[in-house]
Design a protein around this nucleic acid. Sequence first.
DNA 1: CGCCGGGATGTTAGCGCTAACAGGGGCAGG
DNA 2: CCTGCCCCTGTTAGCGCTAACATCCCGGCG
Lengths: 348, 348
Amino acid sequence: MEPEGATRALVMSDVAARAGVSHQTVSRVINGHRNVAPHTRERVERAIRELGYRPNSAARALVTGSTRTLGFVTVNINQYGPGQTLVGLERAARAAGYSLSVTVLDEATAEAMRDAVDRFMAQSVDAVLALATYDDAVEALHQVHTPLPLVTVQSGGALEAPAVGVDQVAGARLATRHLLDLGHRTVHHVTGPADSKEARDRDEGWRAELTAAGAPVPVCLHGDWTPPSGYEAGRRLAARKRAGEDITAVFVANDQMALGLLAALHEEGLEAPWDVSVVGFDDLPEAPYLTPPLTTVRQDFAELGRRAVELVLARLAGRELHLQPVPPVLLARASSGPVPVGRTPAGL
Amino acid sequence: MEPEGATRALVMSDVAARAGVSHQTVSRVINGHRNVAPHTRERVERAIRELGYRPNSAARALVTGSTRTLGFVTVNINQYGPGQTLVGLERAARAAGYSLSVTVLDEATAEAMRDAVDRFMAQSVDAVLALATYDDAVEALHQVHTPLPLVTVQSGGALEAPAVGVDQVAGARLATRHLLDLGHRTVHHVTGPADSKEARDRDEGWRAELTAAGAPVPVCLHGDWTPPSGYEAGRRLAARKRAGEDITAVFVANDQMALGLLAALHEEGLEAPWDVSVVGFDDLPEAPYLTPPLTTVRQDFAELGRRAVELVLARLAGRELHLQPVPPVLLARASSGPVPVGRTPAGL
DNA sequence: CGCCGGGATGTTAGCGCTAACAGGGGCAGG
DNA sequence: CCTGCCCCTGTTAGCGCTAACATCCCGGCG
């Protein structure tokens, strides 16, 4: 047993010498080639173990052309969705024997995106995964002429590149349907930023469900995913309600804004679900503990990550693969209830 | 102008040929060596630009022994702190010309940690950054005999390895002091998980401040960072208060638990700050929009990331560097107020 | 008995880059 | 005008690995 504190880096020929074979045989063992005698294989494996040898990945990458690294670029990881997507992706990549190199964009501009992909190329990652919900980012991705396989996540198919995502439209319909089922005449909507495909998809789903139900489609309010913007929307909504507008249900495009909205409503003396029902999107860990617990739509990020990696590996293997969007799930909690007319909640 | 759609990867000698120099001169230009005639340098640079050439990082890594990649290993990135730390780190690493390879541990066990570091070694990253707030992780880090420079983040100096962190003790003292200054006789505390150094540091800071002020040190409640555990603590606290215990102020070890606690209190008919003052830790984006807006302690993760990278680069350069912990900041909001005796809040 | 085929192993040639040394031309000083 | 030095540039030799080819040995068959 060799002491593991190596003064000099171990190389393949050290293993070869110890096993009494050529370095090429060691290489064959490591790469699992057949045509190695069982006896030899075992001796080599023992030598590797005893020495604690690790193949040099740079040398390997140089000759094979693959670094077994995936690049992931995203914006705004401080939001729940991107963060969870990262976790899901990393887990899936690791399971497949790949490392994940991460870039967090400061801003969702075309230039920043191009720069990030550029860095990935320089780093010679095998493929790039991009969380591209913002149009700027998507556009930048369009412009990047790269021989690298590219898979976009949550881009809503806005790009011809292979993509995976959670079905945002379906999620929004779920939320809207839920409120309609509760007896609300219609549902108001607070959107995410207009340049986000995700936000537009949720808007579209909301609109579609309303139309399908023959409900009027109210003018919607606009936010930017952040709690302050939800707060602002809440104030405006409260004012409109006080002015006599018939507002009983609101679908907010994400939980963070819903939280801000709830706070504003509360300040204005309006309480969910009694005065107005509120549904969010994302299912933050905090959602069940808001006042009131927030009804919301959950996205399965682990599954999303798994599919993204699956897709990228398929492309790497030259296979074409088409994946259906991941279906979201509605979680009904206390923030949504029947229409406020003094009756106790009855329906569902 | 060459068309950039390359059928074959560009190599250094392509650039050399175009610029009419040897590949070594190209190398010199790329690596910013002096002793290159301005005229030549410019011609080479133009050729690089026109061809869109990018040096092959694997070849470079092979010969220099450096991949210019940093490995970052963390647990539980779905929490705000780790996520923000990642962002800060990535930003700082990128600014220094390094890439960040990320591993998210499924569980904070020694084995998982060892495995992660192992992978990093195989990947030949230049150094490893570890977010090691859990004892298991710290212990694992102890056991990992690696020639790789290792810098721990938020480990509270529990390891002899160089470390950076936000001063948790100071943050907890800030929170406690704030409540004491408001006139509370003492401050109760909901801790994080016992095997987290961060949690213990906050506990220690709370205890120290109380002792320094000559205030009694109540038995504390235990949570695990999650909203449900905070909720649970809130219920118990409410019960104790109803049972006649003198509870007027609570310092909760993080915002997520504080949120759960607030919800439980609300359910029990207790409202902050009227019935009890609550202070959290982290400053989630949601904190200002809770009901009531949460007083909390903010950690500067961007700065933390910067220092971590600074430290790791110093070690890589052979310099020894000792950095002071990053000071946290208290943000007083509506969830904390004077002792409840029927008076309206006055001070601050 | 010699030849052939195929499995096991060794040898050689790069992958694309940087480091170390070699050369060559200009300018100052003798 | 030559020497010597310095600045610039080119040439050569690897980094550690894998792929392709060469070699060897063995058994089977004509």
